[in-house]
Design a protein around this nucleic acid. Sequence first.
DNA 1: ATCAAGATTACCT
DNA 2: GGTAATCTTGATA
Length: 220
Amino acid sequence: MNNPVVPSFLKHSAKLKREFYTRPLITVAKELLGKILVKTEATHAYTKYKISHTFLAGKIVEVEAYDGSVDQAAHTFIGKTKRNEIMFRQGGYLYVYFTYGAHFCSNVVTGKEGQGTAVLIRALEPIAGIEEMIINRFGRDLKNEKEKLNLTNGPGKICQAFNINRDHYGADLIGNEIFIIDQPAVNNKNIIITKRIGITKSIDLPWRFYIKDNPWVSVK
DNA sequence: ATCAAGATTACCT
DNA sequence: GGTAATCTTGATA
């Protein structure tokens, strides 16, 4: 089945269904690698630039898992609050939070109702809408080719490039605004497993996963 | 009302 | 490699 908002070159791929997301956290985290995050755009942030794309897309190349039942670094460890309530729903919703007074981060809620588990999207490889991502990130043209690698190689950078913010808190990934497109699973040999980055609690859990040798991974 | 910490980034030496 | 910026959230009073 073709979805009308799916880019033409991805027409024969399927949008991930609820059943993908409601499986266990670590399973979903690993399998999200290689999949394609898509955001449709009704308007453009900078109208003075000519932008031909109506959607943004990027391959997921780095993720981290968070589980409030055992993991002190998870926002759900303290129980349900107004901020984290979406993480306690069943899988397939977007948990967006604001941090350090400047940055938004995107998470894919996983598992069953009440679990409080989610996967932080830490890095993407840009695939479509790159011109718009450049404007969203820098407000100008690229200075050099090297800057391409700085578009979506971090959780805050992804949200800036895709213009993801408070408005997208709780977005249903089974919907048509933000969703993820299926791709073949990445071979286990090409998945690197490490400790997570930028946290001060439960630092030894090996819950960061990234695609080996991908140049958009935030930290090697 | 006040406070400390934060799933980051950009810029500096 | 070090650190300032910046503001929301949740806890405590």
